[in-house]
Every structure is written in structure tokens, then in C-alpha cells.
């Protein structure tokens, strides 16, 4: 199915159908179903250990699932090989620990994907990379290596690395959890900007302010289940479930 057809038929960019996953005895995802439309920003929140990170990582098969289906633009997520690699290249992923390639300059980090996977020529890849690095505000650091950058700068560079693949959607797995408090906003600002630009996003985070401001939909998870979901104002002001109320109280405490 081509992109236009998919858009016409209103096929979700990302869809999970009855996804289950165990780690040994632990049931980390229980019958999770979720669909994300083009341009939608879905923020996943919940207590730690609720399975929200795992959920995010199953979407590009960094974690496998036991049963259920994951579809990207209506196509089943492939299980291996070049098909899987191609599908992954169309989804951006941002990690808690940035995970920049330690032996490469920031510029090389950003151009690696486009050059290796998309076969872009060097000049084109670098031109695009420099634009993206400027957009996230780390253009001056292009020729440094990751260890020379602050955490916030590294995370912004990591976002640029994902954007360089011109992804259909972006997955954020707790992107600010490893950052010092003063650096959180610089990363969130980039993400707000992206959301405003119409990027389809799934964001796993503890930043409630961000969720309220940017999310089209908030998904609340606990014990591997989606307990409730809804528009941010509804959810934060009138949570329906007891679990959500407890969770919101617990983070309001400080």
C-alpha cells in the first residue's frame, strides 16, 4: 500500500492489536491494543515497570512479542532480515541513554543511516545532516565526538540522527529520564517543535507538563495494561480509573 493510499483509507501509521508479552513469569504486556493516526502525538505514561518502555520497543521489534499483531501503515511488522531493517529505517527511535556511536563525530552519527541504509551520496547526506543539527541547535558540535557533548546536546543530536532517515513516525523511549534537570527543557523544546511540524509520535515519558501541552492523546499504563486513554485535559483533570488517580496523586506529591 502506498503512502497516499494509506492516508486516504485512514490506515493508522502504527497499530498494535492484542499484543501480549512475557519475561519468564512476568506478564509485561497484557492484551495491548493501540492505534496512532498520521500526525498524532500519543504520550504514554505510567508507573515504572508498567510496560510502557517495552511497548515502545516492540514497535520496531527491539523486543519481540508473544502474540498479537503490530502493523506499520497496515503492513505487518516483519520478523527479520532486510524487510525488518527497511521497516525500522522508516521509524525513528530515541533512547533514554542517547546511544550515539562513541567512535564517530556527531556529523558521522547523523549521516551513517542515510549513507548506509538509503545509499545517499556523502555530500547530500552531510548537507541534510547539518540542516538537522542546526534545527536541533547543535550545529557547532558537528565535528565533535559524543563524549564531548552535554547530555542534552547528545540527545538532540540523537533526535537529528533519527530525523535524517525522514521517518514516518518517531518513537521516544523516556528521552529525558537520563538528563540533568537543566537540560530537560532543551530536549523537550525540540520535541514540541517536531510535534507542531506534524510528526507522528509515540512518547514514553514522565514529563506531565509536556504531555498536557503537546499530546493529542494520553495513554495510561499499569501492570502491562492500557488502563485508560483520552485527551490530556480530560485525563489529567478527570481520571476515570483509581489506578490513574493514585498515579497522578503520587507524582503531584512533590
Amino acid at each position: 500500500m502506498s503512502q497516499e493510499q494509506a492516508a486516504e483509507k485512514n490506515v493508522p501509521v502504527i497499530e498494535l492489536r492484542h499484543v501480549d508479552k512475557h519475561y519468564g513469569d512476568l506478564h509485561v504486556l497484557r492484551d495491548v491494543s493501540l492505534s496512532v493516526q498520521r500526525g498524532e502525538v500519543v504520550v504514554v505514561i505510567g508507573p515504572s515497570g508498567s510496560g510502557k518502555s517495552t511497548l515502545c520497543r516492540t514497535i520496531n521489534r527491539l523486543e519481540t512479542i508473544d502474540s498479537g499483531q503490530i502493523l506499520i501503515e497496515g503492513e505487518l511488522l516483519p520478523q527479520e532480515g532486510r524487510e525488518l531493517a527497511r521497516m525500522r529505517s522508516e521509524l525513528g527511535m530515541v533512547f533514554q541513554q542517547f546511544n550515539l556511536f562513541a567512535h564517530m563525530s556527531i556529523l558521522d552519527n547523523v549521516t551513517l543511516g542515510p549513507r548506509e541504509v538509503l545509499g545517499q551520496p556523502k555530500e547530500e547526506a552531510e548537507k541534510h545532516a547539518l540542516e538537522l543539527l542546526a534545527r536541533v541547535g547543535v550545529a557547532e558540535q558537528a565535528h565533535k565526538v559524543p563524549a564531548q557533548l552535554s547530555g542534552g546536546q547528545q540527545q538532540r543530536a540523537a533526535i537529528a540522527r533519527s530525523l535524517a532517515m525522514r521517518p514516518k513516525a518517531m518513537l521516544f523511549d523516556e528521552p529525558t529520564s537520563a538528563l540533568d534537570p537543566e537540560m530537560i527543557n532543551e530536549v523537550l523544546d525540540v520535541m514540541v517543535e517536531l510535534a507542531r511540524g506534524g510528526m507522528t509520535m509515540i512518547v514514553v515519558t514522565h514529563e506531565m507538563g509536556f504531555a498536557r501541552r503537546v499530546a493529542d492523546r494520553v495513554v495510561f499504563m499499569a501492570d502491562g495494561q492500557i488502563v485508560e486513554e483520552g485527551a490530556p485535559d480530560d485525563f489529567f483533570d478527570h481520571p476515570r480509573s483509581q489506578r490513574a488517580r493514585d498515579f497522578l496523586d503520587s507524582i503531584k506529591g512533590h
Partner: peptide, 13 residues
Amino acid sequence: VGQIEAARSLGLT
């Protein structure tokens, strides 16, 4: 492991 996962996410084989 993180760097390997990052590379995988970019679609590298």
C-alpha cells in the same frame, strides 16, 4: 547494547 540497538533502529543490517 544501546549502540547496537540504535544501529538496528536506523535500519542497519
